[in-house]
Simulated scan of single mutants.
Amino acid sequence: MIKIKVSAVPERGFCRCGKRWPHEGAIVSREDFTDEQWAILQAEKMIKLEPVEDEPDKEEPEETATGLSAEEVKAIKDGIAGSESSEILEDETKKAFDASKERLAQLIDVFTQLGPDDMTQSGTPSVKAVEAALGADVTAAEIGEAWTFYQARLEEQTGKNNESGEAE
């Protein structure tokens, strides 16, 4: 498996191919991208790509700023396209949330990287922090709807984890 360090040139990070790339870099596998996505990353001047030697001894799950492992975040994002979550999107969230599923996935990526200082007094991510991390304009309504969806998925994920850990 080919590992690559993807680093954003801007200090605040940079979004491309549905992911926010930190300035410090993120280690990814080439196999995680389609040929089209890989070509986009290679052509992007705001991103640096560096080969990384594989370290098989260090396979600890990466933890996000929310305290979730990378696997848990992936499960939430995968739920966007899953049948149960698609129904929720159609029935509840999609009515008020006009952005695409890709935009929702981008916002979820940003949410996992925000810290307590990036939140408003009401506990939602601030527009300023999300725009800085996303590298694009975003409305408070868009953040609110995406945050509601994200929180529901977190609760759903937490419930599943609690159920599987309970003794009979």
Rank of each mutant, 00 (worst) to 15 (best):
F97D: 14
E72H: 11
A141H: 11
K74F: 07
E63I: 14
T93R: 07
G144D: 12
S83Q: 15
L114R: 01
D54E: 15
A105G: 02
P61W: 04
K101F: 04
D117W: 09
T124R: 09
E44I: 04
A43S: 12
S100M: 04
P51S: 04
V130W: 08
M46T: 08
A140E: 15
M46A: 10
G123A: 04
E44T: 09
E62F: 06
I80D: 11
F149M: 07
E44H: 07
A146H: 04
F97K: 00
K94Q: 10
D117H: 09
E131C: 06
E92T: 11
I143K: 05
E90K: 12
T93N: 09
I143V: 14
L134Q: 05
V110K: 03
P116A: 13
K48P: 01
S69G: 13
V73K: 12
Q113Y: 09
A65I: 00
F111I: 01
E62P: 03
L49I: 07
Q113I: 03
K101M: 12
E44C: 04
A105Y: 03
F149P: 00
T64R: 02
K77S: 00
V138M: 02
V130L: 03
G79D: 14
D118S: 14
V73T: 08
E84A: 13
G67C: 05
F97G: 02
A141K: 12
E131D: 04
I143N: 02
T120W: 06
S83C: 11
D98E: 13
A65V: 02
S100V: 05
Y150V: 00
K48H: 08
